[in-house]
Structures are given as C-alpha cells and as structure tokens.
C-alpha cells in the first residue's frame, strides 16, 4: 500500500529532475563525481541517503526492487530501506538477484552476474578516493582536474614497501575509462573485477557528501596496481559451509567461544539458490536431500 501523503517514491518531482540531470551527466563523464543538491531524507546521513535518492529518481511503478546490505537481504538497514520504498513507491520487492530490475546495495556486488536492463545503485559514504590522502575538497577537485593521481600511487607504493602488498582490502580505488580515479564504495576488493565490463548500469549515490557518480555498461574499470604487484581479488581461503561454493565472498561466523568458526556466503540469495539446487557444504545437515 502506497503512502498517499507523499509523492511516488517520496521525492517531489523537482527534486527528482535535479537528481536525474545529475545522473545523466554522471553517465556522460564516467567516474567523475557530479555535485547534486542532496536532500535531507527521513533516514540518517551515512545510512544510504544517497543510494535512496538515486533509487527514488530511477524507480518506475513496474520495477522489482532488491535491497542488500553486506550482501544480505535481511540485514536491518536493508529491511528498513526496502520498507521505505514499499511504503512510498508501492513497488514489488524481491530477494532474487535475477528477478530484480533495480538493486540498491551497501558494500557488495551480487555474485550472480548482472544483465542489461538491471540497475545497481551503490550507497557511498565517502565518494572521494583521494580524501584520506588529502582532506580538502578544494584540493582533491584540482587533482582530478589535472589528472594528478601521483599521491595515490605513492600511497599504494608505500604500502608495498612497508607491508609487501597493497594494504587496502575494501574501497579499493579504480580508474574508469582511463580518466577518473573513482571510489567504488566500500565493497571488498574481491568485488572489484565485477565493476568492469558489467552489462548493468552502475550508479553511486553519496547523500551527505552530495555527489553522484556512475559507471556505464561495459566500461573499462581498472583497479590501481603496479606491474610487479598486480591487483589480486582476494577472499577467505575457504568454501561456503552451507552451499560449498568456492568462488563466492564469505562471511566469517564465530560459532562458540573456543575459536570454532564457519564460513558462509555473504550473498544470501546466491547461497540459498545454490542450496535449492542441491549444493551442500561442510556443515549442511546430514542426509539432507537435494
């Protein structure tokens, strides 16, 4: 049931037009952060206000929306955002990646490859990849303008010198179409390869920082690295204990206070689909029939 007190998808039409214009410019300049007049949403900054505004500007009544946080549909903030759109847009929701037309995500790219016709909306806390090297927006804007990304390479190289490898495990910076260095939001670097050549439209919304950026379909997205230290997507060296998957990103779950652990897919839909297909892991119930 849609809440009649608010416009479709909550935002007024003028606000949606402003966000829509920013989205088109973001697609035209891949990886560049377009400033937009982010609104104060009825949920806290830092909790997905940018993603929510982008989703609201994209939704049509016929969409099927999926919302995930840490890969899971059932985490409380994902539940809360999904409810917000059920209430204000009346759209159908789904947990199935393949059935969704719009997916709003925090910190993961689904394991199931996306397709044309799908839109992946990322919630972004700090859109500026150079922010932790240079806190001033006035400076980082200039660095992007001049393509002055040396500082980033120096930082990554210092990591190698100190730790033997690049010590960035998530929000790993990428270069889009050979021009802008972009923050892919705090996804694990395991997910970085999925940014490139993706048939879906990828949109990034940062509400508090009032920036939108985008990666068009099939774009060239390269994780920053060095010839002698090439980028490597990494994950826990285990299989999922529920579905046996060896190739998906895993959450570590502590099951008692004596150090016993298990590993399960962070993408709950992926894991459930595999189990439904009969795949089993180390801790699946014995004798369970596929």
């Amino acid at each position: 049931m849609t809440d009649q007190a608010y416009n479709f998808a909550y935002l007024d039409e003028q606000t949606k037009r402003m966000i829509r214009r920013a989205l088109l410019k973001a697609l035209a300049i891949p990886g560049y952060q377009v400033p937009f007049a982010s609104r104060e949403m009825p949920m806290p900054y830092g909790w997905g206000t940018g993603g929510v505004q982008v989703t609201a500007a994209c939704l049509t009544p016929e969409d099927r929306l999926k919302v995930i946080d840490q890969g899971a549909d059932d985490t409380t903030n994902a539940v809360s955002i999904r409810r917000f759109f059920q209430r204000t847009a009346g759209v159908e929701t789904t947990e199935r990646t393949t059935d969704a037309t719009v997916i709003q995500t925090r910190h993961r790219i689904p394991e199931q490859p996306l397709a044309e016709g799908q839109i992946l909306v990322y919630q972004v806390p700090i859109p500026e990849p150079l922010r932790f090297l240079e806190p001033r927006e006035t400076e980082t804007r200039k660095m992007h303008e001049l393509e002055e990304y040396g500082l980033m390479h120096v930082k990554l190289y210092e990591d190698i010198a100190r730790h033997g490898e690049i010590a960035t495990a998530y929000a790993y910076p990428v270069r889009v179409e050979g021009r802008y260095v972009m923050d892919p939001s705090p996804i694990p670097k395991f997910d970085n390869p999925k940014l490139a050549g993706n048939p879906a439209i990828q949109l990034f919304g940062a509400g508090r920082e009032a920036r939108i950026h985008a990666v068009p379909p099939y774009s060239d997205v390269v994780s920053l690295d060095f010839e002698d230290h090439p980028f490597a997507a990494s994950k826990a060296d285990h299989e999922c204990d529920l579905c046996g998957s060896a190739g998906s990103y895993l959450d570590e779950v502590i099951t008692d206070d004596r150090g016993t652990r298990m590993f399960v897919c962070s993408d709950t839909d992926f894991c459930a689909s595999r189990q439904a297909q009969g795949h089993r892991g180390r801790l699946s119930p014995q004798g369970a029939t596929p």
């Binding site: 909790w47 840490q70 925090r106 998530y170 705090p186 694990p188 395991f190 959450d251």
Partner: peptide
C-alpha cells in the same frame, strides 16, 4: 551498521 564484509576483508 553491519560492516561484516569490509571487516572480513581487513
């Protein structure tokens, strides 16, 4: 909020 994924990466 949950940061399981980022924390797992770290």
């Amino acid at each position: 909020l949950p940061h399981y994924v980022d924390f797992q990466a770290e």
